[in-house]
Amino acid sequence: MSYEIREVDGAAIVALTGDVDLQTSPAVRQKLLESLEKYKRIVVDLSAVHYIDSSGVASLVEAFQVSRKKGALFSLASVSAAAMRVLSLARLDKVFTIHPSVEAALAPQG
């Protein structure tokens, strides 16, 4: 698992690659919470996530909750089929804001 954080128009794009599991999710959680310290808008790019387990989903939920408390925007973009399967089984696909692509996530909100 690897991650890459870049800044676009004041938003942090957190791109995760590989497997987010019990081994790697603590780092993901930490990166997401750190990003929320600095940015008012976070987009998590899940296009290259081959696998995400319940602990990875929990990190996303926690970041989502923190963002709401801080009034920051938190969304997922380009969610891979594997990640989507887990999110929908967890019934969280309707909870998160999910964009088809990072570009769509950064587009001005209608």
């Binding site: 387990d53 319940s54 929990a58 939920v61 089984l89 967890a90 969280l92």
Partner: peptide
């Protein structure tokens, strides 16, 4: 599942 919070998901995923 009506509660949005981290954790406790594993058993649900297995059973699903």
């Amino acid at each position: 599942l009506s509660e949005v919070r981290p954790g406790g998901l594993g058993v649900h995923l297995i059973k699903s």
